[in-house]
Every structure is written in C-alpha cells, then in structure tokens.
Amino acid sequence: MTDARRWGKTAIGLVLTGVMLFPVYWMINVSFTREQDMRKSPPSWFPVKGTLEGYRAALDQQLPYLGISLVVGLGTVALTLLVATPAAYSLAKLRPRGGGTLSFVLLIAQMIPGIIMAMGFYAIFLNVGMLNTVTGLIVADSTLAAPFAVLILTTFMSGIPEELMQAARVDGAGTVRTFWSIIVPVSRNSIITVSLFAFLWAWSDFVFASTLDQGGAFQPITLGIYHYIGNNNQQWNAIMATAVIASIPTAVLLVIAQRYVAAGVTAGAVKS
C-alpha cells in the first residue's frame, strides 16, 4: 500500500519533471531535426528521421566561439579565485576590523544590474583601449562571480575548526603558510564549487559580451548563438545544436557538484 503510494508519487514527480524540462527536450529534438521537417505542421515530436547536419554546421562555424568562451571562463575562474580566496580566509579566520562592512559591500555589489556595470566598463575600456579584448571580458565577467565567491568561501571557511589552525601555528606556520597549506586544501570542495559557478556565469554571460566585445575578432559562444539567430534564422537545427553544446558546462556542474549547487543557491538567502 505505502509502496504503491511511493511509486505513485514518483510517477507524478516524473511527469512534473517532464513538463518542466520540456523546453530542454525540445531544444535537443530540434537540434536533430532535418531542415525540411523544421516547419512541418504538426512538428515531429521525436527525431525519428534525425540528422547530425545541425551539429556538423555548429561545429563547423562555432568552434572558435567555443574556444574563446573556454578561455574567458578559465580566466574568470582564475581571477575570481585570486581575489576571493585570500579575502574569504581573512574574513572567516583573521577577523579584520571593518570586515563586517566589507561583507555588506559585497552583498550590495551582487545586486547591481549587469547592464549598468556594462555601461561603466564600456566608458572605461574605450579610454584604455580594452574594448573587444579577451582580457577586458574576463575582468568584466569576474564581477559576476567575485562577491558571491567571497561570501560563499567565507561561510565554508568559517566552519574549519580553530584547532586545525592552532595546530599549524604551534608547528610554526605563519598566516600565509596556514592559508596555503591548511585552509586552501581543506576548502578544496568549496573552491571547486565556486570555480564551477564562476565558469558557468562567464560562459553564459551575454550582457558584457554584447556590449564590450561586439566588434571584436574574439567573441564568445553567447554572441555566436546571438548572431546565428539574427543572421540565418532558417537553420534552427544548427542554432539548437549550438545551444545544446553551450549547455555542456551546465550538465557538468550538475553532475559534479549537485549538492553544492543547492548550497550555492540558498547561500545568503536562508539562515542556516
């Protein structure tokens, strides 16, 4: 009886998930659909006469964009960690005077709309000649993740037991040494989580790319898709194939860091 009920709930859950993920399925379905079936009515619900021509076109034309996005994503991760990890260590363990104010500023910084940052960056980059550069995009994209990274890492690092640090101190390790040999290795999981988020946000960024990098030779995949939609709106299987490829980091994040993702979403929203 209870067993049947539990399976019943699973069935409802499967249906709900199916409804929720229908757009994702549809993206995949369209990516395999042949050009001539694209405007068929009613549409084909399954890619029975599937084709890989969309993926072939996508890889043919979008590979450079994917490469740029990869570089920008990794650069953003590096810059974010460089700034955020020491700061989090300090806020969590060294109790700086004014640390509370700094945390407050970071919380506020997270709420500033990207489009406003983009306009300020545009004015600055124009003057220093950083428009349409990969470096400029990395700098701008890192602002999406840096405050979040500091706040999350601080929370995780606060949980590291004091005894561990005291033991290091007794062994003669200084603050820097403690940071490098104790804090960073112990916080490995949270650092990976932050890195994955920073990568995903840089990879997904459209606002900064479309304002600070719209004329450059090195454009990320978000602009690749955007131009695709604008230019050849007939070839939707190629557009959706690119979208599927662009979703790979999302899938990786979900598989590798599933439980941290939930923690990342709730961080700062709910008191523990």
């Binding site: 929720m20 993920l21 757009p23 994702v24 549809w26 993206m27 995903l200 990879w203 997904s204 459209f206 978000t222 898709i225 955007y226 939609i229 557009i239 959706m240 979208a243 662009a246 979703s247 999302t250 994040l253 979900l254 993702v261 939930a262 979403v265």
Partner: peptide, 14 residues
C-alpha cells in the same frame, strides 16, 4: 535545477 543553470541565451533562443 536545469532551467536555472542553463545559459540565458540557450533558454531564450529555445
């Protein structure tokens, strides 16, 4: 979580 994690350009174009 998938819809929330997808790049916005992906969900928007879909």
């Amino acid at each position: 979580l998938v819809p929330w994690l997808l790049p916005l350009i992906v969900s928007s174009s879909t």
